[in-house]
């Protein structure tokens, strides 16, 4: 079943950011959007979620009944907020089953008492394991420590095997090779193209 079909889409904020992009993703697939910094990968992801970026040309068709989960590069602002790991997971209805052992032991602690890597992994887990059909992840490996980064491809694969489609943005070629079924290159729009 197709969850998302992107056909010759050009997106951007004030002006087109990248060349036309085409891809389709169904249940259980992982598609990586790759490309150099500033190519417009995150912008495209923002357009997919309807979070402000514009679609200048082409089509984006998202299956209406698909439940979408979104993880951005922003870390949740939790310093000074009395919120535990368990409470963060409960907000997105994510289950803690399968969390790495070190992290499941931290669930009762306030998030601002954890390390940056632990906090980022929990924030990612809260989206990754929320009830969703399609997950859009922007640089999911950012801010993770070495252990978290090493366990991430397996975590994504497990989720895909459960029937979830995953679109991820990453500039890390090794990471995308380890987990994605295919990669779609997003190329920046040259000035001549824009004209």
């Amino acid at each position: 079943m197709t969850l998302l079909h992107v056909e010759r889409a050009v997106t951007g904020w004030r002006r087109p950011a990248h060349r036309p992009v085409c891809f389709t993703i169904g249940r259980g697939e992982i598609v990586a959007l790759i490309g150099p910094n500033g190519a417009g990968k995150s912008t495209l992801l923002n357009a997919l979620t309807g979070n402000g970026a514009r679609l200048f040309s082409g089509h984006i068709h998202l299956t209406p009944e698909a439940r979408v989960g979104v993880q951005t590069q922003h870390q949740p602002p939790v310093a000074g907020l009395p919120l535990t790991g368990s409470e963060l997971l409960a907000l997105t209805e994510a289950r803690p089953d399968g969390l790495p052992q070190g992290l499941s032991a931290c669930l009762a602690q306030r998030l601002d008492a954890l390390s940056g890597g632990q906090r980022q992994y929990l924030a990612l887990w809260s989206i990754l394991h929320s009830p969703a059909d399609l997950l859009l992840l922007d640089e999911p490996g950012n801010h993770l420590d070495r252990t978290g980064l090493a366990s991430l491809p397996a975590a994504l694969r497990t989720r895909a095997r459960q029937g979830v489609g995953i679109v991820l943005v990453s500039h890390d070629a090794r990471f995308t090779q380890a987990c994605a079924d295919r990669a779609v290159e997003v190329e920046p729009l040259e000035t001549d193209d824009a004209n």
């Binding site: 979620t49 309807g50 979070n51 439940r67 979408v68 989960g69 979104v70 993880q71 951005t72 949740p76 602002p77 939790v78 919120l83 409470e87 963060l88 409960a90 907000l91 997105t92 924030a123 809260s126 989206i127 929320s130 859009l136």
Partner: peptide
């Protein structure tokens, strides 16, 4: 209450849902 927290912590996910 839960949605107030979610909207403050992860507005993009809130919109996407």
């Amino acid at each position: 209450g839960k949605r107030l927290l979610l909207a403050s912590l992860n507005p993009e996910h809130f919109h996407a849902r």
